[in-house]
Computed example of a mutant assay.
Amino acid sequence: MISHPFSQLKIKSRMRGLARMMGWVRDTDYRLLNHHLLRMQEKQDLDALLAEIAHCLAAMLDYRLFAFVIRDDTGVDVWIDPSMFRDAFSRIVAEDLGLDSDADIRFMGPTDTEGLQQRIARENLDVRSFEEKDFTAHLYLATGRKLLPYHDEILMTLLSGLRAALVNHVRIRRLEGAVARDGLTGCYNRREFDLQLRRQLATAKRHGNPFSLIFFDLDHFKKVNDLHGHLAGDAVLRTVAREVGQRIRTGDLLCRYGGEEFAILLPETEGQRAADLAERLRSALAGFEVDAGKGLKLRVTASFGVATASGSTDAETLLAQADAMLYRAKEEGRNRVAF
């Protein structure tokens, strides 16, 4: 069949029009990119930089979801917009990164999660990643526009603009991690305990998961210091922290609450499982000797109190319940678990 010359002209005209339109769209996107790159240079912190990138991509690609994930040896940070996808995205990130649970994720940026949470599937997300010496970064997008080849260059340009800020962010987080540790035992300190308790309890409430808290206190510890000196007492505290730390899960947090008192935060753990863990720890501590130096061997025991949060339990109430159980364990003779 022979095409009519007029029809061929119409097709060529439409193709030229489409090419002009695509060129105009591309030029518009690059002008938008340049505008936001200049604005990024004015930002002083990572959160503000990510917000600027979000504004750029919202105007350019009309995204349904924008999220940025940073992972280093201290944990995982996530910046996400809009927050209505936070729960679903937490599960996607946990699976992508091989996390024990999404309780290991720390959120930056918008934190409003009061609205109805929405589902989103992994196959609906486009991902760009890069790796530095000390961290990996991942950009997730669910776009309202089809991604064109030149958008890859735009996305990588935006990521390149973030690199210096990411290096500083990871460095600062490591310094904060050092501040969060108890110098003697290496456990998290009281300040970090208070912060993590509220954070993890809020996560448990949001997902409807169980959450438990263990307090334990070394029995008659004052006698160790009085009879053998503070160096021996320090050896006991370090050994107890090491032995307990080796017997809990990666996602559990061991903290030195104060003096000879410790606490363990147990996400996704209901009461009986927490009590069973406390009993295993009690038995383990009672079953070994601490090398306190100069040939001195000491035996220690500990009393444990266990509390579990319900849907309405706040941090202060959970602390009071765990403390009451610890007191009961001591009143009933020490070297035991109260739940």
Rank of each mutant, 00 (worst) to 15 (best):
S13C: 07
S13Y: 06
R14E: 14
M15P: 05
R20F: 02
M21L: 14
M21C: 04
M21V: 09
M22A: 05
G23D: 13
V25A: 11
V25D: 12
R26T: 08
R26E: 13
R26I: 11
R31D: 08
H36E: 10
H36Q: 11
K43H: 07
D47K: 15
A54F: 11
H55K: 15
A59V: 12
R71V: 04
D73Q: 15
D73V: 13
T74Q: 14
V78M: 11
W79A: 06
I80N: 02
M84S: 13
F85R: 05
D87E: 10
A88T: 01
A88E: 02
R91N: 03
R91T: 03
E95V: 10
G98C: 12
G98D: 12
G98N: 14
D102A: 10
I105M: 10
M108K: 09
M108P: 01
G109S: 13
T111L: 12
T113Y: 00
R119G: 10
A121D: 07
E131P: 01
K133A: 11
D134C: 13
F135G: 11
T136G: 08
L139Y: 03
L141H: 01
R145K: 15
K146R: 02
P149V: 10
P149Y: 11
M156N: 11
T157F: 07
L159Y: 11
G161K: 14
A164T: 14
L166G: 15
V167P: 03
H169G: 07
R171P: 00
R174I: 12
G177A: 11
L184Q: 08
C187Y: 13
N189Q: 12
N189L: 10
N189V: 09
R190H: 13
R190I: 03
R190T: 04
R191K: 06
L195C: 06
R199P: 00
K205R: 15
R206W: 04
S212W: 01
S212E: 04
L213K: 08
F215R: 12
H220K: 09
F221Q: 04
K223C: 03
H230T: 03
A235V: 01
T239E: 14
V240D: 03
A241D: 05
A241F: 04
G245Y: 13
G251P: 01
G251K: 08
G251C: 07
C255K: 11
G259P: 02
A263M: 07
I264A: 03
L265N: 06
E268V: 13
G271Q: 10
R273V: 03
A274H: 05
A275C: 01
D276Y: 15
S283I: 07
A284L: 11
A286H: 05
A292C: 00
G293Q: 10
G295T: 00
L298I: 08
V300K: 07
T301C: 06
A309G: 11
S312P: 05
A315R: 09
T317L: 14
L319H: 04
Q321W: 08
A322C: 05
E331Y: 02
R334D: 01
N335I: 04
F339G: 00
